[in-house]
Amino acid sequence: MNFIELTNMSHVYHDGTENAHTAVDHIDLTIKEGEFLAILGTNGSGKSTLAKHFNAILLPTEGHCRVAGMDTADEAHLWDIRQQVGMVFQNPDNQIIAAVVEDDVAFGPENLGVPPEKIRQRVAESLAAVGMEHYRKFAPHLLSGGQKQRIAIAGALAMHTKCLVLDEPTAMLDPSGRRDVLHTVRQLHEKVGITVVYITHFMEEAAAADRILVMEQGKIVDDGTPAEIFRQVAVMKKRGLDVPLAAEVAWRLRQQGVRLPERILTDEDLVMALCR
């Protein structure tokens, strides 16, 4: 079943003025329920603008965006849509609402009308999932950059939405924090079956998705499995992007005559292939 459907959708900032700027340019896209989709693209290619349509923070200036069959432009559906799609913004400062961490994480579920005892449980679970349980009583605006990012992720997790949209959720995290977040998201995807839209500049993270979109100047220029996308090493580099390290090493080894299987995305794939 299609969960998100975009038809001929555009977003022009300051539409109709001399500062008009087309950030998303006539996109057709369907995202299936339960899919894990990563979005790649250079700075300014339109990733965040696109993602903000998925829970009706932005509305199309042309075309349509449907979420679970509901047109996001129809105000009557706003509540329903936000109940189904949680969002982690690129800058956590834009997301922090309350003066205490646990209230901040509770804010989403409270708005959804979740009963108080359930909320407490969800807050505890979500904070534990991002390793921030000790900061429950802390003031979120007084946290370090990476700690704020973790709180923002916990807030989205606590909503238990069917779909999670994460905009560069690991940009400020240390490697162990990045691993934890990706692991948590994958678990939710695999065990609970939630739909994930994951924007990132880390190619190894995108390799964990089922499908990758590549954006350029507001358009989708490529759409495929990680294996399909990352096979094109030269193309990806020409786009200003990259491929996972193991994929590039494999590509270079093949060029020097080493026989290797087609699909090598992770270190483990390469180790398996070389050390049979």
């Binding site: 240390d174 390290l245 390469l270 070389l274 050390c275």
Partner: peptide, 21 residues
Amino acid sequence: QAGLAAPQMVTLLTKLREKGL
């Protein structure tokens, strides 16, 4: 202890080494 990771190439080569290359 610092929550870091060795550079990706070092990590890959170390894994290969552990598997006997």
